[in-house]
């Protein structure tokens, strides 16, 4: 793929974190502390719900960013989210599998499916990959709709149990909030560590110059499959988390337009940064709520924002922060 598009792996600049060590660490600590403490005081149910969706959507967008960090665009991301949701829901409803285990199961299964699919399609680089992920997503929706005996078709599955921790059900929004926050932090840390490692180095090489990466002894298809599988597996796991919160899933829960929504979040937040996906979710998830009176305009606005960011702010919102930081640095 082209070298000009920013990728996640480029955040792996040597010494990057260490150089900003203290202030960065402090900022993270403050952010995390306020994320933990604030909901205790301002327990508005609506905002809590929104915060929960923001966190899970952030995981979706970040996992998509992981796939994009090797230069691949997946248009089937929502299908993996949905597949994860169905796996855990069906396991819980039919076999009484505890949701926590179901979530792990969903993540593993979707990750493996992605690896298998990736083995087939990642030999086809770039465009073919995009087209096949798109087709695979559509076929998944078709199956979910038509496999009545298992998925109950368009009616979906109801009565999905809430996650329970040590016999303590996370059935309120506040309780789930802490679970979602923990999941978010876990995924964030994992991807951050991955990008800092030799994997990140391989991913970045592939995204920037595939031929040179191969000539440097980096097994391009292997790392592309790893990124696709990890990203899709995380999406599947997070999809399971989501449906144990919503307590319902149907083929319409996660569709192609959700795949586009995740892409929008990632691009708007910033493709080149792990924070980008989270930031994009933070900005775009509440948007439909703010536009309640204007049903229909919402999607158009999503599209317009996406185009606008692509055209005028290719680095996404994250790059605004960087821009200011550089400006400040110059003034010193």
């Amino acid at each position: 793929m082209d070298a000009s598009s920013p990728t996640l792996a480029k955040i792996d600049q040597p010494h990057g974190i260490r150089r900003h060590g203290l202030p960065m660490g402090l900022a993270i600590a403050v952010l995390l502390a306020s994320a933990i403490v604030i909901p205790q005081f301002a327990a508005n149910q609506f905002y809590l719900h929104l915060a929960n969706i923001v966190l899970i959507n952030a995981i979706f967008a970040m996992s998509l960013g992981l796939i994009m960090s090797v230069g691949q665009l997946s248009l089937g991301h929502a299908a993996f989210v949905s597949a994860g949701g169905y796996i855990s829901a069906l396991a819980a409803l039919n076999f009484k599998v505890p949701p926590l285990l179901g979530i792990v199961l969903a993540g593993l299964t979707t990750g493996l499916v992605a690896a298998a699919l990736g083995k087939v399609i990642l030999r086809l680089r770039g465009v073919y990959f995009v087209l096949v992920t798109f087709l695979a997503g559509q076929v998944f929706t078709l199956i979910a709709l038509n496999w009545q005996s298992v998925t109950h078709g368009a009616n979906g599955l109801i009565g999905i149990p809430a996650i329970s921790l040590f016999g303590f059900p996370l059935a309120t929004r506040l309780r789930f909030y802490y679970f979602a926050l923990a999941a978010f932090v876990l995924v964030f840390t994992f991807i951050w560590a991955l990008m800092r490692s030799q994997y990140g180095r391989a991913f970045g090489s592939i995204a920037e110059n595939m031929r040179l990466a191969e000539a440097s002894g980096i097994d391009v298809s292997r790392y592309q499959i790893i990124a696709f599988s990890l990203g899709s597996g995380i999406a599947g796991g997070a999809g399971a988390i989501m449906i144990h919160y919503i307590r319902f899933i149907s083929p319409d829960s996660f569709t192609f337009s959700d795949s586009i929504a995740y892409i929008t979040m990632l691009v708007v937040g910033g493709r080149g940064s792990l924070v980008g996906g989270a930031l994009g979710s933070l900005f775009l998830t509440p948007l439909p709520e703010a536009l309640r009176g204007l049903a229909g305009v919402q999607h158009i606005l999503y599209g317009v924002i996406l185009l606008g960011v692509l055209l005028f702010l290719p680095g996404g919102l994250v790059s605004v922060g960087r821009f200011f930081k550089r400006g400040l640095g110059r003034q010193k």
Partner: peptide, 12 residues
């Protein structure tokens, strides 16, 4: 690797 630092290029 055009967008990466020179040392990162060699590390890759």
């Amino acid at each position: 690797f055009p967008a990466s630092s020179v040392i990162e290029n060699v590390l890759r």
